[in-house]
């Protein structure tokens, strides 16, 4: 999973007066494709941009467990259930990798969790849409994870070492997510008329939100130029969006499903699919908290946090009693 529009939230990074010497050396290292590691000197704005981006990404993984988790108990077969549990567990793991990467920049886990629970932090708006039918689980894997992979692969080469390493691990694990989603869609699309209709309905609802996951058009994206110079971002929102459209439209055709865009057409001149206009008012409404499930998602996270409080307290008390060491049984080697 991934968060869209990572560059649309928060304050504009302010290039502080930090001395031309270190800043120039820093940029020279970036330009030479060197990786920046946690203890290296970095501009404060670079640090803050990364904390914001990585933590939003982490929050998206965690909140992203909710829409699909909704279907674990009702997965149609044992195989589908096992797969879905594994996928949702992966998303949790991805959140853990990313929180760890963000923490290397000097923010604590507790602060990050608090920012999520208080509503101060943003996460991908795609997860504020409901999963109404089983086909939605297929559409999320196929489209949402597909868009995520498109976004995430370039971040494997991000200039910040811990983020890049987390992303390599995530990308390796993510490709099964997309394939299992497509397989669900294929099964439904080739099934009964009712199943086919269910797959089409899911595509109708998830197509545009997936397209919007890539964030605002380049002209409206505030941080792109700086993030590109820092090699946090490698491609613009519109470039990635176009790549996604070009690979996904033929997949929909294979499924025998119709992309819900009457103006979608193949453009011979550019050799790309061209889509109709995007309704950005919906995107910004969901971002502002007015999506179908914004409140429900945060409430679910808060409830989980509150319900787990006694477990954390017990674990801390147990650790204090044993001095933080593993009881007998664990050994070196």
């Amino acid at each position: 999973m991934y968060t869209q529009a990572l560059d649309t939230h928060g304050r504009e990074p302010v290039p502080a007066a930090e001395g031309a010497g270190p800043a120039a050396r820093f940029q020279a290292r970036i330009d030479a494709d060197e990786k920046i590691e946690p203890k290296d000197w970095m501009p404060e704005a670079y640090r803050q941009t990364l904390i914001r981006q990585i933590s939003q990404h982490a929050h998206s993984e965690i909140v992203g467990m909710l829409p699909e988790g909704n279907w674990i108990t009702r997965a149609p077969t044992l195989r589908r259930k096992a797969v879905l549990i594994a996928k949702v567990q992966d998303e949790g793991g991805h959140g853990m990798y990313l929180y760890s990467a963000a923490e290397t920049l000097g923010v604590s886990r507790a602060q990050l969790i608090e920012q999520l629970l208080s509503g101060a932090a943003k996460y991908s708006s795609i997860f504020n849409y409901p999963t109404l039918t089983w086909a939605d689980v297929g559409a999320i894997g196929w489209l949402v994870d597909g868009a995520a992979i498109m976004n995430q692969i370039p971040i494997c080469r991000c200039s910040y070492g811990p983020y890049a390493r987390a992303m390599v691990r995530i990308c390796k694990e993510e490709s099964f997510h997309q394939r299992q989603g497509f397989e669900i869609m294929l099964t439904l699309a080739q099934g009964s008329a009712a199943q086919h209709a269910m797959a089409q309905d899911a595509l109708n609802r998830w197509w545009w939100p997936s397209i919007m996951m890539f964030g605002p058009s380049d002209g409206d994206s505030r941080h792109t130029a700086q993030s590109m110079a820092w090699k946090i971002k490698r491609f613009s929102n519109d470039e990635l969006r176009q790549k996604f459209i070009d690979v996904t439209v033929p997949q929909a055709q294979f499924l025998g499903l119709t992309i819900p865009d009457p103006r979608l057409r193949w453009d011979e001149a550019t050799q790309h699919f061209q889509i109709g206009p995007i309704d950005w008012s919906e995107f910004y409404a969901v971002l502002k908290g007015n999506g179908p499930c914004n409140r429900e998602r945060l409430e679910a996270r808060r409830a989980a946090d509150a319900a787990g409080a006694w477990v954390r307290e017990a674990a801390a008390a147990y650790a204090a009693k044993h001095g933080g060491r593993a009881p007998a049984g664990a050994s070196h080697g």
Partner: peptide
Amino acid sequence: VGSLHAADARMAVEHARDVYTRR
């Protein structure tokens, strides 16, 4: 391979198993 938070060493091993060895 990475890092994680845990209340004690045993929990750290258990979490490491879940976070870093799912495959």
